[in-house]
Design a binder for these strands. Structure first.
Lengths: 341, 341
DNA sequence: AAAACTGATCAAAGCGCTTTGGAAAACCAC
DNA sequence: GTGGTTTTCCAAAGCGCTTTGATCAGTTTT
């Protein structure tokens, strides 16, 4: 059943029926009621394609998700997406996802923006210099970046965590406890957030006049095995570091496994501080959390980014909008004073 | 730039331009080349909405993802989706995701199917009796179920793992090692896969004439904390079970943490067999995997489910299609003979 | 009672594309 | 050069909706 049929059935014009359903004021309450009931009864649903075409809005938001070399979908996405998806759903928008091999993102974003299928897009995982930003600005489609780049921040919308401050604080906390050998297991540093985290770590060490030791700094895909393998490397050293900073709960689980396997105790022999995205399936909670962490919910970020994007779509002339979030430092069981030698 | 403008520019009719771009044979190679080049040069992208409307196909597949009570997105989705998304992308389809509060799924599926926005849908996480199946059959939209229900299996498309057999094998393996007290930490048993896993476990115990003990059987959301808490319960018992069966790597990580925290060793004091979906971010691999497991890739399932759906969309008259996969039993470090009393 | 206004409805054009049913041009054989 | 085929292109209708501008009754104003 389509609009025409429904309006024939009701002996009304398509105009009136359309307006009745979309809540326009030009139609009397009596007929509106009649129309809505008939639509319900006949199981009529307006075609999204047709209405989208007619009003030039697609009522959908695009996400492009790059798969890494090993076709791995970063698990942090699922929480981000569940936050964003919830916002879209409530606003009547759909989420359009394109999974794409690493490297092709830019062209996929362009196509997505051009073919009129979405009204705005989210940029995930910006690198230090990210060509997508200028590409999207050229096209003129609204977009929000989750994170930032090293490009001019003032020209686009973004929501980011203060990664420098977070990791500086985490490092300082370990320094205050008396640690001097602090390892760092980071994500890939071409990703902007990872680069900023490293800056925070290095700043803190600098200020404490501790030399930076590249031998105890790792980068890689933030997975459980990454944490495990890196930690194993560290424990092999003549003088293993007494504290480790990690970029996500996932590698932290792996690091913990390596520590326990070596017969050592986390929080005593080795202190761990992790960034905690509050992944819903790996929650670091309880009376005293398992890990000491700098914490910021990636799901909340998804919510906020989505809200901002919808706002920008409805007010296309608005100025670029930013939010910089501070992570909280949460004390858990994984840190303590270093065992004195 | 739209079709009309491009065709004016080329001094051709929209018909010819459209055909040239879509690769129809009625247009000479010379003009096709001219058209394609002009399209490129003018950065012309056909409107997806308009073409979808005109040909009655949306070129998109719908996924409805229920959030659990705590707004948690099951992390297993992300791997499934990355597999499916890859297939869609290669076939020129988009993935449309609606995140929806638990319980509203049926109506959301209906709306999605009706409003012409997608050409087919995937049914995730079927329960034992799932109303979505009949709803979708009524509507007549192609769909594929990831998993099965207890309804008549022959009437719809599905891809499933032989969960009964997998868990029976896993249990038998533990029995063969000499274990007699085997606990089971399962997912929610209103989910069909979890129910079938339980059947497999119980069948094996029955055949070995071992009584089923509900006190050492848990169900819940399959997360790290679930495994941790359940395991802690088990270790508190006067005579803790010597082996545990778990439904996913996530709770297994938690169980392992509890075991290690209690000063015991996995694979010696406590044997663990888990179902391994081969989650990309928690891989159970290496020379000898961390966990003994029954293994089946959920990403591969996503790929296959997507392929089948696209096939069904292209041949709507085809018979329902099913695939039942056998999980492999992979030996890892987490199992051994029980410590003799 | 004519004029002005208001509220409820409608006809028709348009969104940007595909596709049907020709028509025109080019080619072929005889 | 006539009739028949192919090849290449086009005009126009249609997909299902929204929206502009107009109509028409009913109400109020002068």
């Amino acid at each position: 059943m389509n609009l025409k049929e429904l309006s024939d059935f009701l002996k009304l014009s398509p105009t009136t029926v359309s307006r009745a359903i979309n809540g326009y004021p030009e139609v009397s309450e009596a007929t509106r009621k009649r129309v809505v009931e008939a639509a319900e009864a006949n199981n009529y649903h307006p075609s999204h394609l047709a209405s989208g075409l007619a009003k030039g809005k697609a009522m959908a938001i695009g996400h492009v998700i790059p798969l890494s070399k090993h076709m791995v979908m970063n698990p942090h996405f699922s929480d981000f997406i569940s936050g964003a998806g919830d916002v879209y759903c409530k606003a009547g928008y759909d989420m359009l996802i394109r999974v794409v091999a690493e490297g092709e993102e830019e062209s996929v974003y362009k196509k997505l923006a051009k073919d009129g299928r979405v009204d705005g897009v989210i940029v995930h995982g910006p690198s230090n210099y990210d060509a997508r930003i200028e590409a999207l600005q050229d096209i003129g489609i609204p977009f929000v970046v989750h994170g930032r780049t090293n490009q001019d921040e003032s020209t686009y919308n973004w929501v980011d965590v203060n990664n420098v401050r977070a990791f500086k604080r985490a490092t300082n906390y370990l320094l205050d406890l008396g640690h001097r050998d602090i390892a760092f297991i980071n994500g890939f540093e071409f990703m902007n957030f990872a680069m900023r985290r490293r800056s925070g770590y290095e700043e803190a060490l600098h200020e404490a006049s501790i030399e930076i030791n590249p031998e105890i700094m790792f980068t890689g895909e933030m997975t459980e095995p990454q944490g495990y393998e890196s930690m194993k490397q560290l424990l092999k050293r003549a003088k293993p570091p007494t504290a480790i900073l990690l970029s996500s709960i996932l590698p932290s689980m792996g690091a913990m496994r390596a520590v326990q396997e070596a017969g050592l105790t986390v929080g005593k022999d080795v202190s761990i501080v992790t960034f905690d995205d509050q992944l819903s399936f790996l929650q670091n909670s309880g009376d005293i959390p398992m890990f000491t962490s700098v914490r910021s919910s990636i799901r909340d970020a998804g919510v906020r980014v989505a809200e901002i994007l919808l706002d920008q779509i409805n007010q296309p002339k608005a100025d670029p909008y930013h939010e910089l979030w501070e992570a909280e430092l949460v004390l858990g069981k994984s840190t303590g004073r270093p065992v004195s030698v």
